[in-house]
Simulated assay, not measured.
Amino acid sequence: MQAANVPDRSEALLIVQNLRKVFPLRGGILNRVVRSVHAVNDVSFRVDRGEVVGLVGESGSGKSTVGRTILRLLEPTSGTVDFDGANLNLLSRPEMRRFRKRMQIVFQDPYASLNPREKVRTILSHALSVHGIGDPSERQDRVVALLEQVGLSADYQDRFPHEFSGGQRQRIGIARALAVEPDFIVADEPVSALDVSIQAQVINLLDDLKEQFNLTMLFIAHDLAVVEHICDRVIVMYLGRIMEVAPTRALYSRPNNPYTQALLSAVPKPDPDAPKNRIILKGDIPSPLNPPSGCVFRTRCPMAIADCASVVPALNEIGPGHFSACIRTAP
């Protein structure tokens, strides 16, 4: 059954339907499965062509697992990932290789994602050679162009990663993702490891590249303040489930789900005289090994009622393109 927040729209480049990812935990002498971690549980959403969708939630919410499962860096337990009309789950390895060129990732850690033994020239040209793009001379020209596109000098191509700052390394990671001219990019918390001042520079760069190349992007972050100015829509996740989906302006002005309200209350406001209605959530996010029954957020929700322990709230449309999973705010 198609989820309500995934309409059949011809402009959708990516449609994720009822995605689940379970990690088995093995133990004992026979190395049998003793427990399971439900990292992603029944997640459905779409990303339209030219759109940047934010995927936000605390650490442990499953958002990075969603991104990696979409790209089949992790195999889904169930559900479907449809990219430009093709069900990626059904593709063989050779068939999936063709789609790798169209789907790229920018990793979270700019220090671990670049080979320390390779110069920038080799790092960027390797992506081109793997997909058989250009001859050596054309690849060299492409390397220079990529560095300039991400705001780095062409002279940097003969340096090693350790010679760069974190922000510069992440620019190189972005250049590597752009090298094969992909249709879709998963940006997996691309600024979380950077200083606040550098975060703004990298976000502005991605925003500029989005406009320049009409990029379609899934932008993963744990901070709602990070995604506000780059994303067209925002998906809020908690413990493997989607809690709210809305256009960015609607989400920030009229958050419906109690979890979204708590996250937004923690976003710093530039106006020192603005009212500070901080919602403090009790305790930590529960372990995915033993998630709460009913609504997964109920153990920390300030609005929880008795029915929350037994009812798994559906994503109900509460406004145009605005969906929320909460039994107290359901229509």
Rank of each mutant, 00 (worst) to 15 (best):
Q2E: 06
N5M: 10
V6T: 15
D8N: 08
R9L: 11
L14T: 02
V16H: 02
L19G: 01
L19A: 04
K21W: 11
F23V: 09
I29M: 11
L30I: 09
N31H: 15
R35I: 09
V37N: 03
V40F: 02
D48L: 14
V52E: 10
L55T: 00
S59E: 04
S61A: 04
K63R: 13
T69W: 00
I70H: 05
L71F: 07
T77H: 00
V81N: 08
D84L: 08
A86N: 11
N87V: 06
N87R: 08
R93P: 08
R102K: 14
Q104I: 04
I105A: 06
Q108K: 10
Y111E: 15
P116L: 05
I123N: 01
S125C: 14
L128S: 09
V130Y: 09
I133S: 11
I133Y: 06
G134Y: 12
E138Y: 10
D141V: 14
R142H: 03
V144D: 05
A145I: 10
L146Y: 03
L147K: 11
D155M: 12
D158R: 12
D158Y: 12
P161C: 10
E163M: 15
E163R: 04
G166K: 04
R171A: 01
G173N: 05
G173Q: 02
R176H: 12
A177Y: 06
P182S: 15
D188F: 03
A193M: 07
A193F: 04
L194P: 05
S197N: 06
I198T: 09
L205P: 05
L206T: 03
Q212L: 15
N214T: 09
L215I: 13
T216V: 13
I220F: 05
I220S: 01
A221H: 03
E228A: 09
I230V: 09
C231H: 00
D232I: 05
V234I: 11
I235M: 07
I235N: 05
M237H: 06
M237F: 00
L239R: 03
G240A: 08
R241M: 01
V245Q: 04
A250Y: 08
A250P: 06
L251N: 01
L251S: 03
Y252N: 01
R254L: 15
P255A: 08
Q261P: 04
A266T: 10
P270L: 13
D271W: 07
D273W: 04
I279C: 03
I279S: 01
I279K: 02
K282S: 11
K282G: 08
G294M: 08
V296H: 15
A306T: 15
A306I: 12
C308W: 06
C308V: 11
S310N: 13
S310Q: 12
V311R: 14
V312Y: 15
V312F: 13
A314N: 13
A314V: 13
L315Y: 02
N316E: 14
N316K: 13
P320S: 10
P320I: 10
H322L: 04
F323Q: 08
R328A: 05
A330M: 03
